[in-house]
């Protein structure tokens, strides 16, 4: 749970209170808190003077506007064709073993969430994944271990 009132006001000052400000505001909340709580969506609805259902309806359409609790670092492994051909299953296996969670789950310390995603545009350097917005490419299980270790130290 997080207190989002001030952040919503700040974001509304920055992006405006029009309907087309909605997605930039939601993106701003996710950037800071990794996902959207019900409270956050209600707060945004009040600020923009629209129905909370409109906010939820919009947010739930977009896969990066999570409405489920997410960890500090959201790992999205590309599962589309080239990454599949080039061994994304080994990458997933390595991540699952290291984090001791399955796809769709979050570690108990709320540090990592493991997800799959559709093509992220790195087919020539497959397999690839995103950790929050940072892309990692030409992955091998060994490389994944190193990358994850560096995040665990943060």
């Amino acid at each position: 749970m997080y207190n989002v009132g001030n952040l919503v006001k700040e974001l509304a000052e920055k992006h405006g209170r029009r309907r087309d400000s909605l997605i930039p505001i939601l993106q701003g909340i996710v950037e800071k808190h990794n996902y959207l709580t019900d409270e956050a969506m209600v707060e945004v609805a009040k600020e923009l003077d629209i129905s909370a259902a409109e906010v939820y309806g919009t947010a739930s359409f977009y896969s990066f506007l999570d409405t489920e609790p997410r960890g500090k670092y959201v790992i999205r492994v590309c599962k589309t064709i080239t990454c599949m051909m080039k061994g994304k299953n080994d990458i997933l296996q390595t991540l699952e073993d290291m984090l001791k969670i399955k796809i769709g789950e979050t570690t108990p310390d709320r540090m990592f969430t493991l997800l799959e995603t559709n093509c992220i545009g790195w087919c020539h350097k497959a397999p690839a994944m995103l950790i929050n917005e940072i892309p990692y490419t030409e992955l091998t299980p060994e490389k994944v271990v190193e990358i994850l270790k560096s995040y665990m130290k943060k």
Binding site: R18, R19, P24, Q27, T58, Y62
Partner: peptide, 26 residues
């Protein structure tokens, strides 16, 4: 600039407009 949020369909032009306008990308 406007950022997408992980929806392939928003590459369809009218869905993209909807998305910029703050709606579901339909």
């Amino acid at each position: 600039y406007r950022l997408g949020s992980g929806a392939y369909i928003c590459g369809e032009e009218s869905a993209l407009f909807e998305s910029i306008q703050g709606e579901r990308g339909e």
